[in-house]
């Protein structure tokens, strides 16, 4: 065994102080990424700061937002009536994460701060235009989801900052959908797509957001797909054209799981499916 120090602070302030005081200190939340990294000796931190005792596990409906504490477990996102009603995209996305064991322990904040480029929740958060609350030695700040994910396993958080909560705007007048494909159920996906489609009274797309995961170092919004939809009636042909436009702008890489060409193809297919579902949902009372 490789020795390390272990601390379990009771307040966010103490946790931040520990991060600030010790180089290379790592936060332990659900441990779904960190513990395997320790097991495989991919990470050898000298200090582990266990934040499970911090009061960051609440789901609170506020004015136009759902505020999710960083320690909200995946299964809570999956099951919370507030989440299912007000930001159903999150419940749909999180159901793809790992398996029941992973979702029992894994945390929202852990998944976002780990920033695996294929993870589901970052994609959903960018699609929902969520805002991340961080606390560091220099104080508190807010970071838009679109600016949070920088590169694989790299975020906008400073070394002494802790992600404490996420504010997710309530989904109003829009339909959402999350679709992904993995080599095996529960694996990180080859491609994931989150779609948010708002339709106006005239039946035209008022706004659309299409975000891909697994294709680059961070979640990728597709401006071509969104532009292709905005202001148009979301017919199957229009949706297909938008998905095709999205694909043309993508240059995914090849790895051991799939070629870049297959990923690009999947991106188009899954974008089409996600947009169809989101549009159908937007046109029904389900989300009104």
């Amino acid at each position: 065994m490789i020795p390390f120090e272990y601390h379990a602070p009771a307040t966010v302030g103490d946790a931040v102080a520990m991060l600030a005081a010790r180089d290379g200190a790592k936060l332990l939340a659900g441990g779904q990424s960190l513990v395997p990294a320790l097991t495989y000796r991919l990470a050898r931190p000298g200090v582990l700061v266990d934040i499970n005792a911090l009061p960051l596990a609440d789901v609170v409906r506020t004015n136009g937002h759902v505020r999710l504490g960083a320690l909200v477990r995946h299964h809570v996102l999956e099951e919370s009536p507030d989440v299912r009603r007000w930001c159903p995209l999150l419940a749909e996305a999180v159901a793809y994460v790992g398996n029941a064991r992973v979702r029992t322990l894994g945390t929202l904040g852990g998944s976002l701060a780990h920033a695996d480029p294929a993870a589901e929740l970052p994609v959903a958060m960018v699609a929902l235009d969520a805002r991340f609350a961080a606390v560091g030695a220099a104080g508190s700040r807010e970071i838009p989801a679109g600016e949070f994910f920088r590169a694989p396993l790299t975020t906008a958080l400073a070394a002494d900052e802790i992600l404490t909560a996420v504010d997710v705007p309530v989904t109003r007048g829009a339909g959402t959908a999350f679709v992904e494909l993995a080599r095996r159920p529960g694996d990180f996906p080859l491609v994931s797509v989150a779609a948010v489609v708002a339709v106006d009274r005239a039946g035209r797309v008022a706004d659309a957001r299409v975000v891909f995961g697994g294709l680059a170092g961070a979640p990728q919004r597709s401006a071509p797909a969104e532009d292709a939809l905005r202001g148009h009636e979301p017919t199957p042909e229009r949706i297909a054209a938008a998905a095709h436009a999205a694909r043309r702008a993508l240059r995914p890489e090849t790895d051991v799981f799939a070629s870049g060409a297959y990923r690009a193809h999947l991106a188009e297919v899954l974008a089409r499916r996600a947009l169809r579902t989101a549009t159908n949902r937007a046109l029904t009372v389900e989300v009104r």
């Binding site: 398996n99 159920p185 529960g186």
Partner: peptide, 14 residues
Amino acid sequence: TTSFASYLIPAAGD
């Protein structure tokens, strides 16, 4: 493919 994350054996869902 030197881990079970990259060498894919069937899991329960498969």
